[in-house]
Each structure stands twice: as structure tokens, then as C-alpha cells.
Design a protein around this nucleic acid. Structure first.
Lengths: 216, 216
DNA sequence: CTTTTCATGTTGATATTGTCTACATAAGGA
DNA sequence: TCCTTATGTAGACAATATCAACATGAAAAG
């Protein structure tokens, strides 16, 4: 499972017997199917059939469907960390506060660009994080990117001083919750279109920063 | 499915053939099993076996396992609405703002008292809300309790004036996200115990109300 | 009181799946 | 060249979802 990553120089002219890139093919096919189906509706046998290998083949790469989904979730967290680090932005803000603002926006942007990953990443029910150590690590790494940023901003007196972890949990939760509801279309009655999303994120950010109360 | 609710005066001295209360028994047994298992690990046949009926019996009440879970989620939203209305509190605050504060706390309290329901309610992956109209309705009803309250507070100048729906989404998201992470033990590294939960909710509430920024 | 109807439960059959074991193939190192 | 090992195949078994045909009894209809 570990050596699988640096396996095979992808013998493109796929011979009959060995697929050559089954692991990746499984991940891609799963991603493709998840656009139309729930994880519950997937099966390893069906995946194998679609790819054109025998029903036993997938087990050489993943012990279970859950493990496969966990791999996708982990991949998601790595990409997510990239977003939060602003590595995926065309232009990065340089000042601390604008950078923080950008991070919040990137959070949501990730969820919209990688909705399937996002759902897998934050759905305990499908993938038990405790069961997959690497996945758990990847998640915590991403969180710490936010937490470190918050800590710095608090130290610089730009954000109110609280336990930075608690504050980060607040931010993480808010954004995570918002994205979840967005993706699950649980906010369908809001009739959100592309433009309005930015407006709502903006309102969100303002709420986070300025609070709801009139008087302090 | 509709008549099933006002079915049968629960013939307690259960005869051999008819169970008499299978629908409720299925819901209860499922709830019991979900304390130790993921929804994915359940099966209708297993449920039937545990209750002592044949493997076909459950289909008379639920067309699928998902429908059964949807029923539980719907039940959850009804209870949730009760919490948000403060009907479950021993003593209700009378002033608007304390009432609002209490509502926020009740939100989290519900998630801790009904974690299984909560997870089902907010997990699109397991139960597709679009597929179950009643469930969707119940969810929106609960949301509107919050939204109405927010609208009033804004009208009274107690909360900053925004689109009340957008503000409600912010609150709902924050609390929902927080609870999700709590229940999924994704915040395990915080080492949360009973007392600390209240402290964190408190911090949460303050953050929501006062915002993160130093200057407004 | 008798008959009929219908919701509820049973039984059996079929297709699909997860999972295990034994075997086949090929690619690379000794 | 031979051997080891990763990868894929084939077959078997138990469990499941799902459907259809049938059984039962409670309540309505007469």
C-alpha cells in the first residue's frame, strides 16, 4: 500500500493481463461515479467491471470500498491544504489580514471546486477517520494551517485574543458548516446562483469578523 | 405509509403472526444499533432477524433502509424544532436576547442528547433529502424557527441588520459545523470533557456576537 | 353473526455483492 | 536464466436487496 505509489512507470500500452495503473483508474472511476451516485450506491465489483478487470483485482490496491474512499478523502485534504496556503491563488495578498480573508474565501472555493472530495473529507459516516491514520493526519495538517494563521493574527493584535485553537474551531466550523449546507443544497430555498455565492461568502466573512451584536 | 402512523392500538399481547408494532420496533432497533455501527453496516435483514420477524416484513413499512433512516432523521428534526423553540428547557428566558442565547445553547444541547438523529439529519450522503419530501419540510421548518427569531431581533435593533436569512445561515452553519466536528470527534485533540464543552459553546456564542476583529 | 377486504407477515427464488483461496502472468533483480 | 513478488484471474460461499406468491387475522361491511 505504501510502495504502490511509486509503482510502475505506467506502461501505457496496456498489455492484456496487467492493467498497469489500476489504483489510479479506480480512484478516477470512483470520482466519476460519485458525481451521480452516493457512496452507498457504489460497489467494488461494479468498479472493476467498468474498468474491465476481474472482481478480485481491486483488492490488490484497497482492502475495502471504504479504504478507497479514504484515499480520495486524503487526497482531498492535501489539495485543501494547498488552497488554505493560498498556493492555488493566482495572486496572493501580502498583508496579514487580507491574507486571512483570502484564506476564508479559498476555503469555500475549494468546496465548490472539489465538492466530491469535500463531502468525503467531512463525512464521518462514510469514512471512519479513526480507522485511517494517514487520513486523520492529513486533516489535522490542514487544520493547523488555519490555526497557525489565527495564532499569528492574534499575536499581532489583529484578531481578538482568545485561545487560538478555539477561535480556529469557530472559523473552521462556520466555513465547514456553510460549505456543507451549500453542497448538500440544504440552502436550496435561497436560490443561490454563481454571483450570489460570492455575496454570501462576503456577508459570512463580515459576520465572522464584526459579529452579530450591535453593541459590544 | 401514511396510514401506518395511526395504525393499530398496539395489541400488546403480541400474537404469533403479526408483530403489532413493527414500524416502531424497526426504528428503535435501528437507533440502538447505530450507537455502535455506521449506517452503512446495517441491513434490513439483520434488523428483521433481531426483532424476530421474517426478512420480508420490514418492506411493509419501509421500501428501503434509506427510507427508514429518513424517518429517523425526520423524527429528529421534529425534536430539534422543539429544542429551538425552547420547549425542552426547564426555564425559558423571557427577554429577546437571552432567549436567542438560549436557542444557540439548545442547538448544541440537542446534538449532544440526540447525536444519532443529528448525524442522520445532517448527512446528505446517507439520506438524500431530496428524495423524501416530508424530511425536507421538517428541516426547513426547524430552520425557520431560527430565521424568524433572527428577523425579530434585527427588527428590534438588537442584532445588526442584514438579510435575516443570510444571517441565519451564518448562525446555523456555525453551530451545525461545530456540532458536527464535536460529534465526529474531529476535535479529539482538544481533549474535550463535559465542563469544557460549555466553556467552548460560550466562547462560540461570544465569537458569533462580537466577531473576531479587534476594530469594527 | 357472517363475509369480505386489506394491511401485515411469511416463504421462496434470483441477482448482486463482499470476501477468501488457489492459481496465472509478467516484470525486475539475483 | 531463474526466482521472487506484485498484480490480476477464476471459482466458491455466505449474506443481502428485492420481488412475487401466499398466509393470517383484524376490522369493516353486509
Amino acid at each position: 500500500m505504501r510502495g504502490a505509489r511509486l509503482r510502475k512507470k505506467s506502461n501505457q500500452n496496456t498489455k492484456d493481463y496487467h492493467h498497469g495503473n489500476l489504483r489510479d483508474a479506480l480512484l478516477k472511476e470512483t470520482l466519476k461515479l460519485l458525481k451521480k451516485k452516493n457512496p452507498t450506491e457504489l460497489s467494488l465489483r461494479d468498479l472493476a467491471r467498468r474498468i474491465g478487470v476481474s472482481h478480485g483485482a481491486p483488492y490488490r490496491h484497497f482492502p475495502s470500498l471504504n479504504a478507497l474512499l479514504a484515499a480520495l478523502a486524503e487526497e482531498g485534504f492535501h489539495i485543501f491544504a494547498d488552497f488554505l496556503s493560498l498556493n492555488r491563488s493566482e495572486q496572493q495578498q501580502s498583508e496579514p489580514l487580507p491574507r486571512f480573508r483570502q484564506m476564508a474565501f479559498e476555503f469555500v472555493r475549494f468546496s465548490l471546486q472539489f465538492p466530491i472530495h469535500f463531502r468525503l473529507m467531512f463525512t464521518q459516516v462514510v469514512v471512519d477517520h479513526e480507522e485511517f491514520e494517514d487520513l486523520k493526519q492529513a486533516g489535522e495538517t490542514a487544520f493547523r494551517i488555519l490555526a497557525d494563521s489565527v495564532g499569528n493574527l492574534q499575536a499581532q493584535g489583529i484578531l481578538r485574543v482568545h485561545d487560538p485553537i478555539v477561535t480556529s474551531v469557530f472559523i473552521w466550523s462556520s466555513l465547514h458548516g456553510f460549505c456543507s449546507l451549500l453542497l448538500d443544497q440544504r440552502l436550496g430555498f435561497l436560490d443561490i446562483d454563481e454571483n450570489k455565492v460570492d455575496t454570501i461568502i462576503e456577508a459570512f466573512y463580515q459576520n465572522m469578523m464584526d459579529g452579530l451584536a450591535v453593541v459590544k
